[in-house]
Amino acid sequence: MTQSHPNPMVDNRKGVRRVLMVALGLNITMSLLKLLVGVMSGSLAVIADAMHSATDALSSLTGLVTNKLSDPRPDRDHPYGHRKYEAVGALGIAGFILFTAIEILMRSGERLLEGLPPIRVTGQELVLLTLVLGFNLLLAGYELREGRRLNSNLLKADAQHAASDVWTTVVVLVGMAGAVWLQVSWLDVALAIPMALLLIRVCSQVLRSTLPWLVDHMAIAPEAIYAEAMSTAGVMNCHDIASRGVLGQQIFIEMHMVVDADDLTKAHQITEQVEDRLEETFGPVRCTIHLEPKDYVEDWITYTGAHG
């Protein structure tokens, strides 16, 4: 059994933390502005949007806490590092998004039962919401760009949350404009309900991108790992391939391999070449290879470990 030396893991937490601090400050500011407009106008959609921005702030705060915990370096109690704390933080963000959607639906039902009381809107309030919309656009773009640069699922999830806030603010502006110029009292609720459904969709997207990491879903197709290993000189066969982790951050690969070598030194050199090739192709990897005798090469042994 050979195991590669753990690769130096890129600790991008400082950069992620800086982005989350900016997001937290902006989200708190936007929450207060929206709440002020909502209280002054009596608009359910604006108050709901203020709550959405408040959950944005909470998600940024959650991200800061989990970012502090998600040290990629292994220790005695966490030999594979602490990266999954970041995934837990992304799940927390999904929970905040879902809570907001349910709250909007509940408030819409209450407003319908109250007989759709009219909302009061002034030009100043519309200007404030337009300003908030501009902040939303800048924040969503900033977090998404930095999330891709730092390869952070946490930032990407927070960017999705911020992007959903852009759409909710657009919906709110349309509803308030309709109340001012068209005198349509039901438009506020009619737009708040699809806004809540949009948030539920965003929540499902965050879950789909995060849960595979937490449940150790396959990170790289075994066929792809097999192809890279078999392209290395001296490799005769490999099978029982498994992988987990996050592509581009840290992948853990296990496999059984047969090499054309008569001594341990040469066999080790071949496995090192395989590890280097895998890292060049897939990014940071930590590879555990179980060497087997040459007579293990049989037609039925494949990369899936299945009997043909």
Rank of each mutant, 00 (worst) to 15 (best):
T281A: 05
M195R: 12
S4T: 15
M257T: 08
L126R: 10
G38Q: 06
T271W: 00
Y142I: 01
W213G: 10
A233T: 10
D71Q: 14
R244G: 02
A190E: 07
D75H: 12
K84R: 15
G92F: 02
Y142N: 00
K34I: 03
D262P: 09
H52A: 06
I28F: 08
G175H: 04
E103V: 04
P72H: 05
V202M: 07
T271Y: 00
E110A: 12
G109I: 04
H82E: 01
R120P: 06
L113Q: 15
C203V: 03
L155F: 00
I289A: 15
M257W: 06
M218G: 06
K68D: 08
L214R: 10
V274Y: 13
L131I: 09
L214Y: 01
L36D: 13
V174A: 02
V171L: 15
M176Y: 10
G147Y: 03
M218Q: 12
L36W: 11
D262K: 13
V39E: 09
D299R: 14
T232I: 08
P118M: 00
E298H: 13
R208E: 10
L155Y: 04
D77M: 08
A140V: 09
V180P: 11
T66Q: 15
A219V: 05
I251S: 04
L247S: 11
L35I: 07
P8N: 01
V170K: 07
R120W: 11
Y85C: 07
Y142E: 02
I253A: 00
L199P: 10
K294Y: 06
S70R: 02
S209R: 13
W181G: 13
L44H: 07
G123T: 15
V285Q: 05
M1R: 13
E86V: 03
L191H: 15
W213I: 14
